[in-house]
Amino acid sequence: MNNFEFVKPSTVEEASAALQSEGAQALGGGQTLLPTMKQRLASPETLVSLTGVEGMVGVSASDGTVTVGGTTTHAQVAAEAASAYPALAALAGQIGDPAVRNRGTIGGSLANNDPAACYPSAALGSGASISTNKRNIAADDYFQGMFETALEEDEIITSVSFPVPEAASYQKFLQPASRFALTGVFVAKFPGGVRVAVTGASNNGVFRWTEAEEALSKEFRADALMDLRINHLNMISDLHGSQEYRAHLVGVMTRRAVESAS
Protein backbone atom coordinates (compact mmCIF):
# COMPACT_ATOMS: atom_id res chain seq x y z
CA MET A 1 0.00 0.00 0.00
CA ASN A 2 1.01 3.61 -0.33
CA ASN A 3 2.68 5.01 2.71
CA PHE A 4 0.97 7.44 5.07
CA GLU A 5 1.42 9.10 8.39
CA PHE A 6 -0.10 7.11 11.24
CA VAL A 7 -1.56 9.19 14.05
CA LYS A 8 -3.25 7.92 17.15
CA PRO A 9 -5.12 10.73 18.93
CA SER A 10 -6.55 10.19 22.38
CA THR A 11 -9.47 12.64 22.24
CA VAL A 12 -12.30 13.24 19.80
CA GLU A 13 -11.12 16.83 19.35
CA GLU A 14 -7.62 15.75 18.40
CA ALA A 15 -9.00 13.17 16.05
CA SER A 16 -11.31 15.67 14.39
CA ALA A 17 -8.46 18.14 13.99
CA ALA A 18 -6.26 15.48 12.46
CA LEU A 19 -8.98 14.57 10.00
CA GLN A 20 -9.08 18.13 8.67
CA SER A 21 -5.69 17.75 7.01
CA GLU A 22 -5.64 17.04 3.28
CA GLY A 23 -5.94 13.33 2.45
CA ALA A 24 -6.68 12.29 6.03
CA GLN A 25 -8.91 9.34 6.75
CA ALA A 26 -10.26 7.78 9.93
CA LEU A 27 -9.25 4.22 10.81
CA GLY A 28 -11.58 2.10 12.90
CA GLY A 29 -10.78 -1.59 13.08
CA GLY A 30 -9.47 -1.47 9.53
CA GLN A 31 -11.04 -4.77 8.49
CA THR A 32 -12.34 -3.30 5.22
CA LEU A 33 -9.99 -0.34 4.87
CA LEU A 34 -6.74 -2.31 5.06
CA PRO A 35 -7.62 -4.74 2.25
CA THR A 36 -8.74 -1.72 0.20
CA MET A 37 -5.45 0.04 0.85
CA LYS A 38 -3.49 -3.10 -0.07
CA GLN A 39 -5.11 -2.95 -3.49
CA ARG A 40 -4.20 0.77 -3.57
CA LEU A 41 -7.87 1.58 -4.06
CA ALA A 42 -7.58 3.89 -1.07
CA SER A 43 -4.43 5.88 -0.43
CA PRO A 44 -4.86 8.21 2.53
CA GLU A 45 -1.96 10.51 3.35
CA THR A 46 -2.76 10.47 7.03
CA LEU A 47 -4.51 7.68 8.83
CA VAL A 48 -6.19 8.73 12.04
CA SER A 49 -6.61 5.71 14.30
CA LEU A 50 -9.69 6.05 16.46
CA THR A 51 -9.13 3.02 18.66
CA GLY A 52 -7.21 5.05 21.24
CA VAL A 53 -9.81 7.81 21.48
CA GLU A 54 -11.27 7.95 24.98
CA GLY A 55 -14.91 7.41 25.69
CA MET A 56 -15.90 5.71 22.45
CA VAL A 57 -15.95 2.07 23.56
CA GLY A 58 -18.66 0.02 25.17
CA VAL A 59 -22.30 -0.97 25.22
CA SER A 60 -24.81 0.57 27.61
CA ALA A 61 -28.55 0.15 28.00
CA SER A 62 -31.10 2.47 29.54
CA ASP A 63 -34.68 3.60 28.96
CA GLY A 64 -35.30 1.25 26.10
CA THR A 65 -32.19 2.30 24.24
CA VAL A 66 -28.94 0.49 23.67
CA THR A 67 -26.01 2.76 22.97
CA VAL A 68 -22.85 1.44 21.37
CA GLY A 69 -19.63 3.44 21.35
CA GLY A 70 -18.20 4.14 17.91
CA THR A 71 -15.07 2.05 18.35
CA THR A 72 -16.82 -0.88 19.99
CA THR A 73 -15.89 -4.09 18.23
CA HIS A 74 -18.40 -6.52 16.78
CA ALA A 75 -17.28 -9.12 19.33
CA GLN A 76 -18.06 -6.74 22.19
CA VAL A 77 -21.52 -5.97 20.82
CA ALA A 78 -22.18 -9.68 20.31
CA ALA A 79 -21.32 -10.32 23.95
CA GLU A 80 -22.45 -7.16 25.73
CA ALA A 81 -25.72 -6.41 23.93
CA ALA A 82 -26.97 -10.00 24.15
CA SER A 83 -29.46 -9.40 26.94
CA ALA A 84 -30.49 -5.83 26.15
CA TYR A 85 -30.91 -6.22 22.39
CA PRO A 86 -30.48 -9.86 21.35
CA ALA A 87 -31.16 -9.32 17.63
CA LEU A 88 -28.45 -6.64 17.46
CA ALA A 89 -26.00 -8.89 19.32
CA ALA A 90 -26.83 -11.79 17.02
CA LEU A 91 -26.20 -9.62 13.97
CA ALA A 92 -22.85 -8.47 15.32
CA GLY A 93 -21.94 -12.10 15.96
CA GLN A 94 -22.48 -12.93 12.29
CA ILE A 95 -20.18 -10.30 10.81
CA GLY A 96 -17.02 -11.65 9.20
CA ASP A 97 -15.34 -14.23 11.39
CA PRO A 98 -14.12 -14.27 15.01
CA ALA A 99 -10.80 -12.53 14.28
CA VAL A 100 -12.51 -9.87 12.17
CA ARG A 101 -15.08 -9.32 14.92
CA ASN A 102 -12.26 -8.71 17.39
CA ARG A 103 -11.04 -5.75 15.33
CA GLY A 104 -13.92 -4.43 13.27
CA THR A 105 -15.96 -1.60 14.81
CA ILE A 106 -19.51 -0.38 14.47
CA GLY A 107 -18.32 3.11 13.61
CA GLY A 108 -16.08 1.79 10.88
CA SER A 109 -18.84 -0.32 9.39
CA LEU A 110 -21.42 2.47 9.38
CA ALA A 111 -18.98 5.06 8.06
CA ASN A 112 -18.03 2.78 5.17
CA ASN A 113 -21.65 1.79 4.41
CA ASP A 114 -20.76 -1.21 2.27
CA PRO A 115 -23.92 -2.23 0.43
CA ALA A 116 -23.50 -5.80 1.72
CA ALA A 117 -22.53 -4.99 5.31
CA CYS A 118 -24.72 -6.17 8.17
CA TYR A 119 -24.70 -3.19 10.54
CA PRO A 120 -26.45 -0.70 8.26
CA SER A 121 -29.55 -2.91 8.30
CA ALA A 122 -29.61 -2.93 12.11
CA ALA A 123 -29.19 0.84 12.29
CA LEU A 124 -31.84 1.54 9.67
CA GLY A 125 -34.12 -1.27 10.84
CA SER A 126 -34.00 -0.05 14.42
CA GLY A 127 -34.34 3.61 13.52
CA ALA A 128 -31.04 4.24 15.30
CA SER A 129 -29.51 7.61 15.93
CA ILE A 130 -25.91 8.04 14.83
CA SER A 131 -24.03 10.43 17.07
CA THR A 132 -20.95 12.21 15.81
CA ASN A 133 -18.62 14.79 17.24
CA LYS A 134 -20.93 17.38 15.63
CA ARG A 135 -24.51 16.16 15.75
CA ASN A 136 -27.00 13.33 15.92
CA ILE A 137 -28.15 11.91 12.61
CA ALA A 138 -31.26 9.76 12.23
CA ALA A 139 -30.56 6.55 10.39
CA ASP A 140 -33.19 7.49 7.83
CA ASP A 141 -31.07 10.50 6.90
CA TYR A 142 -27.69 8.89 7.36
CA PHE A 143 -27.57 6.24 4.61
CA GLN A 144 -27.35 7.90 1.21
CA GLY A 145 -26.56 5.07 -1.15
CA MET A 146 -23.78 2.62 -1.70
CA PHE A 147 -20.69 3.76 0.28
CA GLU A 148 -22.37 7.17 0.73
CA THR A 149 -23.36 8.61 4.09
CA ALA A 150 -24.28 11.95 5.62
CA LEU A 151 -20.87 12.14 7.33
CA GLU A 152 -18.66 15.11 6.61
CA GLU A 153 -14.90 14.77 6.14
CA ASP A 154 -13.91 15.46 9.73
CA GLU A 155 -16.95 13.89 11.32
CA ILE A 156 -16.46 10.90 13.62
CA ILE A 157 -19.10 8.46 14.75
CA THR A 158 -18.85 8.59 18.53
CA SER A 159 -21.78 6.35 19.32
CA VAL A 160 -24.91 4.76 17.91
CA SER A 161 -28.16 4.60 19.87
CA PHE A 162 -30.59 1.85 19.05
CA PRO A 163 -34.19 2.06 20.28
CA VAL A 164 -34.90 -1.48 21.48
CA PRO A 165 -37.95 -2.97 19.73
CA GLU A 166 -40.49 -5.39 21.18
CA ALA A 167 -39.20 -8.06 18.87
CA ALA A 168 -36.56 -8.19 16.18
CA SER A 169 -34.49 -10.52 14.09
CA TYR A 170 -31.75 -10.37 11.49
CA GLN A 171 -31.71 -13.02 8.80
CA LYS A 172 -28.57 -13.18 6.70
CA PHE A 173 -28.14 -15.20 3.52
CA LEU A 174 -24.40 -15.53 3.07
CA GLN A 175 -22.44 -14.48 0.07
CA PRO A 176 -20.45 -17.67 0.40
CA ALA A 177 -16.99 -16.33 -0.48
CA SER A 178 -16.81 -13.02 1.36
CA ARG A 179 -19.29 -13.94 4.07
CA PHE A 180 -20.92 -10.56 3.66
CA ALA A 181 -24.68 -10.60 3.15
CA LEU A 182 -25.89 -11.72 -0.27
CA THR A 183 -29.14 -10.50 1.21
CA GLY A 184 -29.77 -9.65 4.84
CA VAL A 185 -33.01 -8.44 6.36
CA PHE A 186 -33.46 -6.80 9.74
CA VAL A 187 -37.04 -6.71 11.01
CA ALA A 188 -37.90 -4.74 14.14
CA LYS A 189 -41.37 -4.52 15.69
CA PHE A 190 -41.98 -1.32 17.65
CA PRO A 191 -45.18 -0.24 19.39
CA GLY A 192 -45.66 2.33 16.66
CA GLY A 193 -45.03 0.01 13.75
CA VAL A 194 -42.63 -2.35 12.08
CA ARG A 195 -39.39 -1.44 10.34
CA VAL A 196 -37.80 -3.66 7.70
CA ALA A 197 -34.29 -2.89 6.47
CA VAL A 198 -32.58 -4.79 3.68
CA THR A 199 -28.86 -5.01 3.02
CA GLY A 200 -26.82 -6.79 0.37
CA ALA A 201 -29.51 -6.62 -2.24
CA SER A 202 -29.76 -3.13 -3.68
CA ASN A 203 -27.55 -1.01 -5.87
CA ASN A 204 -28.52 1.86 -3.56
CA GLY A 205 -27.23 0.14 -0.45
CA VAL A 206 -29.34 -0.50 2.61
CA PHE A 207 -33.00 0.42 2.23
CA ARG A 208 -36.34 0.11 3.98
CA TRP A 209 -38.93 -2.17 2.41
CA THR A 210 -41.89 0.03 3.10
CA GLU A 211 -44.58 -2.24 1.62
CA ALA A 212 -43.50 -5.00 3.97
CA GLU A 213 -43.42 -2.56 6.86
CA GLU A 214 -47.03 -1.55 6.16
CA ALA A 215 -48.21 -5.13 5.87
CA LEU A 216 -46.38 -6.24 9.00
CA SER A 217 -47.51 -3.21 10.96
CA LYS A 218 -51.07 -4.34 10.35
CA GLU A 219 -50.37 -7.96 11.11
CA PHE A 220 -47.00 -9.18 12.39
CA ARG A 221 -47.08 -12.59 10.78
CA ALA A 222 -44.99 -14.04 7.97
CA ASP A 223 -48.20 -14.80 6.09
CA ALA A 224 -48.87 -11.09 5.84
CA LEU A 225 -46.02 -10.94 3.31
CA MET A 226 -47.23 -13.75 1.09
CA ASP A 227 -48.58 -11.55 -1.66
CA LEU A 228 -45.75 -9.04 -1.60
CA ARG A 229 -43.05 -9.02 -4.26
CA ILE A 230 -40.24 -6.54 -4.27
CA ASN A 231 -39.21 -5.04 -7.59
CA HIS A 232 -35.91 -6.55 -8.73
CA LEU A 233 -34.90 -3.79 -11.13
CA ASN A 234 -32.68 -1.93 -8.71
CA MET A 235 -31.15 -5.04 -7.21
CA ILE A 236 -27.51 -6.06 -7.48
CA SER A 237 -26.66 -8.71 -10.04
CA ASP A 238 -23.33 -10.49 -9.79
CA LEU A 239 -21.80 -13.94 -10.07
CA HIS A 240 -23.41 -14.96 -6.79
CA GLY A 241 -26.97 -14.11 -7.70
CA SER A 242 -29.16 -12.33 -10.19
CA GLN A 243 -31.45 -9.39 -9.48
CA GLU A 244 -34.42 -11.76 -9.51
CA TYR A 245 -32.75 -14.08 -7.04
CA ARG A 246 -31.92 -11.28 -4.66
CA ALA A 247 -35.46 -9.93 -4.87
CA HIS A 248 -36.74 -13.40 -4.08
CA LEU A 249 -34.35 -13.71 -1.13
CA VAL A 250 -35.56 -10.40 0.30
CA GLY A 251 -39.00 -11.97 0.61
CA VAL A 252 -37.74 -15.24 2.08
CA MET A 253 -35.42 -13.57 4.57
CA THR A 254 -38.09 -11.09 5.65
CA ARG A 255 -40.54 -13.90 6.33
CA ARG A 256 -37.89 -15.81 8.26
CA ALA A 257 -37.05 -12.73 10.27
CA VAL A 258 -40.68 -12.28 11.23
CA GLU A 259 -40.97 -15.95 12.20
CA SER A 260 -37.86 -15.84 14.35
CA ALA A 261 -38.30 -12.35 15.83
CA SER A 262 -37.93 -12.26 19.59
Binding site: G30, Q31, V100, S178
Partner: peptide
Protein backbone atom coordinates in the same frame (compact mmCIF):
# COMPACT_ATOMS: atom_id res chain seq x y z
CA UNK B 1 -4.34 -13.80 1.24
CA UNK B 2 -4.75 -10.08 1.03
CA UNK B 3 -8.46 -9.74 1.76
CA UNK B 4 -8.57 -10.82 5.40
CA UNK B 5 -10.19 -14.15 4.56
CA UNK B 6 -7.74 -17.02 5.02
CA UNK B 7 -6.59 -16.68 8.62
CA UNK B 8 -3.08 -18.10 8.15
CA UNK B 9 -1.85 -14.94 9.89
CA UNK B 10 -3.96 -15.20 13.06
CA UNK B 11 -2.12 -14.18 16.22
CA UNK B 12 -3.42 -13.04 19.58
CA UNK B 13 -3.22 -9.36 20.47
CA UNK B 14 -3.97 -8.69 24.13
CA UNK B 15 -5.51 -12.14 24.31
CA UNK B 16 -7.81 -11.79 21.30
CA UNK B 17 -7.43 -13.58 17.97
CA UNK B 18 -6.79 -11.09 15.18
CA UNK B 19 -5.63 -11.26 11.60
CA UNK B 20 -2.15 -9.82 11.74
CA UNK B 21 -2.24 -9.00 8.02
CA UNK B 22 -5.16 -6.67 8.70
CA UNK B 23 -3.65 -4.61 11.48
CA UNK B 24 -0.81 -2.11 11.39
CA UNK B 25 2.21 -2.81 13.54
CA UNK B 26 1.78 0.67 15.01
CA UNK B 27 -1.66 -0.32 16.29
Amino acid sequence: CDTSQCGACVVHVNGKAVKSCTMFAAE
